[in-house]
Simulated scan of single mutants.
Amino acid sequence: MTSRFFFSRFAKSWRERKNQIIYASKATLIAATWVPVVAYFANHVVWIGVIDGASMTPTLNPESNGLIRDIALLWKFGSNNYNTYKRGDIVVLRNPRDPESSVVKRILAFEGETVRTRFPYPESTCTVPERHLWIEGDNIHSIDSNTYGPVPHRLVDGKVTRILFPFDRIGPVSATGGRNPKAAVVDIHKEWNRLS
């Protein structure tokens, strides 16, 4: 009698475990099928990123203590299309000096335009080459095109469109800030006049 009870209890627990294993397998399979979708969205459509550093202060990370960092919506869809950008857009791009890291800067000038540079750039002006951008941080002490020159537009990964955190600053990112493009750009071509 006790052995029958033991085996019936064992069979019941085995069926429950088998059902749990089947359920866990199905759930894992369903979750695994969504991994490529999430990866595609993260790499090509939209992503949420944490903005590090003070190069875009006061537009991004205005807190000087560095404890509160901005979290922003990064729009990546169409980032390789040169014509989608406007003067004043804040973009995320691969660091020209270290392609494994990213930087956040503001677009100041486009190809064919001549820019009045700042120190440490070796010349007083620079004409932006074809399919390149002149980018600068809003903070005057930023390491930007004044350090490494015009950057190829293919380094751009996306555009910072909205601040999501801190909550008191939630909303669209300002298209103005940093150096005034009208004062910095000597020669703005009419076909590239992208002032918003």
Rank of each mutant, 00 (worst) to 15 (best):
F77G: 05
L60V: 09
G66C: 13
H132Y: 09
G78M: 13
W75Q: 15
G149T: 10
E100I: 12
R87S: 09
Y148E: 08
R118N: 02
P166M: 02
E111N: 08
R87Q: 13
R131P: 00
I135D: 04
K86A: 11
N80Q: 15
I107K: 05
Y121L: 00
P58C: 10
L164D: 12
P122M: 07
V156Q: 05
T84G: 01
E136I: 00
T147V: 10
V103T: 07
V128Y: 00
N80V: 12
F110H: 04
A72M: 11
R131A: 02
M56S: 15
D144Q: 01
H153A: 14
L164V: 11
T161G: 08
W75M: 10
I135A: 09
W134E: 04
P99I: 09
S145V: 05
E100R: 15
R169P: 14
L73W: 06
D70T: 02
E130T: 12
I90G: 08
T59Q: 05
G66T: 11
G149H: 03
V115L: 05
E123H: 04
V151T: 13
G78V: 15
V103D: 11
L60P: 14
W75P: 02
I170L: 15
T57W: 06
H153Q: 12
H153N: 12
R169I: 04
G149C: 06
T161Y: 03
R94M: 12
L133V: 10
I163S: 01
I107Y: 10
K86L: 12
G171Y: 10
D98V: 13
V91C: 04
S124L: 10
N81A: 10
L93F: 02
N80C: 09
P96E: 12
P150D: 12
W75T: 13
E111S: 15
V151S: 07
I68D: 11
N65I: 14
G112P: 05
A72T: 12
N83L: 11
L108N: 02
I170D: 08
R162F: 14
I143Y: 01
T114S: 10
F110M: 04
L155F: 04
E130C: 05
P166E: 06
V92S: 11
V151L: 12
L155R: 04
D144I: 00
G66I: 12
N81W: 02
I71W: 07
V103N: 03
P120F: 05
N83A: 14
A109E: 04
G112S: 06
K76V: 06
S55P: 11
P58D: 12
V156A: 05
R87C: 14
I90M: 07
F119K: 02
K159G: 08
E123C: 01
P62K: 13
I135C: 09
G149R: 03
G88Q: 13
V115K: 01
L73T: 14
R116G: 03
D168Y: 14
D89H: 15
K159C: 03
L73E: 13
